[in-house]
Computed example of a mutant assay.
Amino acid sequence: MHRWTDLADVPSDFGPTVVTLGNFDGVHRGHASVLRRMAADARAQGSAAVAVTFSPHPLQVHRPDDAPPLLTGDEDRLDLLEQTGLDAVLLLEYSLDFARQSPEEFVRTYLVEGLRARTVVVGRDVRFGWQNAGDLTTMVELGRRYGFEVEVIDDITPTGHDEALRRRWSSTWVREALATGDVEQAALVLGRPHRLRGIVVHGDARGRELGFPTANLAQDALGMVPADGVYAGWLRRTRAADGTPVVDDEPLPAAVSIGTNPTFDGVQRRVEAYVLDRTDLDLYDQEVVLDLVARLRPTLRFSSVDDLLEQMHADVVRVREVLAAEG
Results as ranks from 00 to 15, higher is better:
F24A: 02
L59W: 04
N261G: 12
G327L: 13
D315G: 03
D155E: 12
L323H: 06
G198D: 00
R318T: 15
T20S: 15
D182M: 11
L300Q: 12
D242Q: 05
G46A: 08
T238I: 15
V89K: 00
R145D: 04
F106Q: 03
M38V: 09
L91H: 10
V140N: 03
R239A: 09
M1A: 09
P213N: 02
A187T: 01
G191K: 13
S102C: 08
V200E: 00
A205H: 15
Y231V: 00
T279D: 15
D228L: 02
P251W: 06
F54L: 09
L190S: 06
W169A: 02
R167N: 10
R29Q: 15
A67Q: 05
A179D: 14
A294S: 13
W169K: 03
V246N: 07
T119A: 07
T260R: 15
D249H: 14
H161P: 02
R36W: 03
E151T: 11
L309V: 11
P253C: 02
P251Y: 06
D248C: 12
V89Y: 00
A294V: 05
F264L: 10
Y94G: 03
V256E: 00
V27M: 09
A164Q: 15
R295W: 08
R166E: 09
T299H: 13
V18I: 14
G26W: 04
R297H: 14
P213V: 01
V140L: 13
L111P: 07
D65M: 05
Q83M: 08
F212C: 01
A254V: 09
V126T: 05
H28G: 07
D242T: 06
Y94T: 03
A241P: 04
Y284I: 03
L91T: 04
L142S: 08
V201M: 09
L115Q: 00
D155M: 08
A117W: 05
F98L: 01
H313N: 12
D307C: 07
L276P: 01
L70V: 05
G134M: 02
V18Y: 10
D307T: 08
L70A: 07
L35T: 02
I153C: 10
A205Y: 08
D66I: 01
S303R: 15
L283D: 01
A255C: 11
S171V: 07
V316Y: 01
G22T: 03
G26L: 04
M139I: 07
L217Q: 00
M312P: 05
V19G: 02
G181C: 02
A240H: 11
H62P: 02
W130A: 09
